[in-house]
Design a protein around this nucleic acid. Structure first.
Lengths: 191, 191
DNA sequence: ATGCGATTGCACACCGGTGTGCAATCATCG
DNA sequence: CGATGATTGCACACCGGTGTGCAATCGCAT
């Protein structure tokens, strides 16, 4: 079927997100299919991973593009982005995990456009004074966005279920240098 | 010699920090020694990694303990901790990288006491009002401390040399909910 | 029922890393 | 010099994952 391919990708994104070293066999089994079948769709493990990240990056780019009301203030745009990203953040765990090891280069290349947009947004926020200048825009955006993933991660492993959307929004805004009252109000507008 | 063992550990902490999947051969070569020699000191790869992390955790615990002027305000104690941690943060990259994959369990166990102390410090700061409550103490400390590593990382890969100590101090304090003027002044006192 | 495409179930060859055994070297100290 | 301990250089067996080839099977539409 055509959806076997999709199912494999869905499962793989989950499995590799948890244990990046999972082999084709493990992924196949989790997808309820035989190793040989996976090779039918993806000639090599590298192909699987690449397809996987392309998919993830596309979805994330879509989320990012949706909020381009170009006139909105940067802090508000950021809050928007995170609020849309948050429900999906676990699916995208792959990216963080896979960035290191074996495929670092490829992933980084795929991810670049997204991270560039983010950096632009942050730069813009620094220019109009809504974000701080304690770090250069490129690094600041990296740190802020990866903090969101860390929050999701810690939430999963240590403890029960999910925090609300406000937690990551407020936290990342604080990190970006937005004063606490403003951060809180931006977050509450989205919960 | 007795220092061969030390040299191997020194090199391994660096090599594995960069590429966590490096094999015994790679590590040996980087240490200017033959694979067989490494096996002489560490019967298995797992032993090497364990020795490695124990060492790192001990050093880090020492850094953390040094600042236990128990009466100091939490935000100041945090700034102290980061300022002492910062120069060493690259050596400890292993921890972040190795926490995932293969040894996750062991590492987490070794790391627990350190992260508990950190969580206590943050909790104490939340109680006396110097830190925010946008996240539970356990998670907040995780995020703050891993942000420091992210900063060091981004600094290395994207761009030239090192930011000053203030960058990580200010950033992590903001993340913890410390208002910007206070954060800045705490940081400047340490640069 | 026939045919077709997707899936399965093996059996392979291959590779790279792990861990071990053992004899040969080398440096050093007495 | 001779002994001792560390290091080397190979050769080996073993394992687990990768990728491939091919015949058998299954489900389904015509």
């Amino acid at each position: 079927m055509a959806d076997t391919r999709e199912r494999i990708l869905d499962v793989a994104i989950r499995v590799l997100g948890t244990s990046p070293d999972a082999g084709m066999g493990e992924i196949a089994r989790a997808a309820g299919v035989v190793r040989r079948t996976v090779y039918g769709y993806f000639p090599s493990r590298a192909d699987l991973v690449r397809a996987l990240t392309e998919r993830a990056v596309n979805e994330i780019a879509a989320v990012l593009a949706r909020g381009d009301a170009a006139d909105a203030p940067a802090d508000s745009a950021w809050a928007d982005f995170i609020s849309r990203l948050w429900p999906l953040v676990h699916r995208y765990r792959v990216l963080v995990v896979l960035r290191r090891g074996e495929f670092g280069e490829d992933i980084h290349a795929l991810l670049e456009p997204v991270e560039d947009s983010l950096a632009d947004l942050v730069r813009q926020g620094q220019d109009d004074g809504s974000f701080g200048r304690h770090l250069p825009a490129g690094i600041l955006s990296q740190v802020a966005w990866s903090a969101v993933f860390t929050i999701a991660d810690s939430d999963l492993s240590s403890g029960s279920g999910s925090l609300g959307v406000s937690a990551p929004i407020v936290t990342s805004l604080l990190l970006l240098g937005v004063p606490e009252p403003r951060a809180r109000s931006l977050a509450e507008a989205r919960s």
